[in-house]
Design a protein around this nucleic acid. Sequence first.
DNA 1: CTAAATTTGTCCGTATGTATT
DNA 2: AAATACATACGGACAAATTTA
Lengths: 233, 233
Amino acid sequence: MSEKDASQVVRTDGAKALARYLLEEINAGRMAVGLKLPAERQLSEQFHASRGAVRRVLGELKSRGVIRQVVGSGTFVAAVPDPQTRGVPTTDTGAISPAELMQARMLIEPLMPSLIVQFGTSLDFARMDECIARSEASLSVGEFEHWDGALHEALAVATHNGFFRQILTFATQVREQGEWGRLKQRSLTPERRAQYEQQHRALVDALKDRDEATAKQVIEQHLQQIQKNLFNR
Amino acid sequence: MSEKDASQVVRTDGAKALARYLLEEINAGRMAVGLKLPAERQLSEQFHASRGAVRRVLGELKSRGVIRQVVGSGTFVAAVPDPQTRGVPTTDTGAISPAELMQARMLIEPLMPSLIVQFGTSLDFARMDECIARSEASLSVGEFEHWDGALHEALAVATHNGFFRQILTFATQVREQGEWGRLKQRSLTPERRAQYEQQHRALVDALKDRDEATAKQVIEQHLQQIQKNLFNR
DNA sequence: CTAAATTTGTCCGTATGTATT
DNA sequence: AAATACATACGGACAAATTTA
């Protein structure tokens, strides 16, 4: 990421300068609590940033409790942002690491066969078959990923338990959002993909036979393989 | 700047047309599952909507699970939006019955000791102790329920696994939101409350001793008791 | 294997309208 | 009535990931 050209590198000049300035001034005590800041448009002009950028910076500070905004009145300094209270206890959902997710999956997903062999219908199994067929016929990695995800969702549906379904949906969201992508791509070689496909078939076959023990075993092997491919390589 | 076209004066010009079109085509089966949609910019041009509007529509469909987007690859049809699964995945409990929830809890919660005996800290155990003490000192049913919930959250935190924590939080939401309250309140007699308190103590003691097997056993007993009290008259 | 092209994801600047004081 | 914060929409540019040549 070196500078390619100094002519058009004006991407983040004003906004970050404003953020640094405000935090610095408030922390140093040069802006007293209760002081009214300039209006958004004025800040926008002073720092050569758009009003949207200014609003984003102010919104960030407001979410931290540093400033307080009153409609029609203005923006005011609320408190000094001490680093101790930075850890917010309210919604600390953020940042579920791939390691955490895999740890949880290896505990939870082996439970699914118990429910599927009890409540799974032929329709459920047909969906799994189609997902496997489509994934094996996939030509690109993206397509394979899609049908792999669809298979996992079909498994979740086959439990016929809404809570489990929600859990697996949440897992998919985490996997798609986080830094999972980098690991995923580098770990999916053709031979590993073939291995996954074989394990998928073995799993669905065992489920069709209502063979809970085997299905659970296959899932555990599958997840162990994924984990090894992800982290160990 | 603008072209004053009489055709596109409407505020909600192409975006809703796009949404209606996609839902109609997918529901009618004219767009097969797995089919790749045109790129965002292409849709933007076709429907005379900005790319932001297109992205909003696609984001809505994605949140419903109708489509799936892959960076660098494209947007794909994921499933037909059948009315059953129309619920949003994020924070929609989607009619999870108490029976379903208990079934899932009895499978999932016995897994927690495995993590807690590995990663639990003395601070975690101190929180549990406080929750137990407060719950035992509670004078009202509501107060007892509060500290009972706090204990469960302390257990979730003690796993030191963000995914588990989210799952347990979700379970609490389901429990508080549904008609769970009436069942539980009706089933909470003084003697059962004493039994719960005893089981709580036994559980925390076992966790402190890093005795995974005993802790798991106590949890299973506890949940079985709850289930029996809930449904079995 | 490398590099270019394509696609989604993200941020920025701008513009317009609404609600509140 | 005027000033202000709030909300939304649009287009452009860059980044990241994927596919393709």
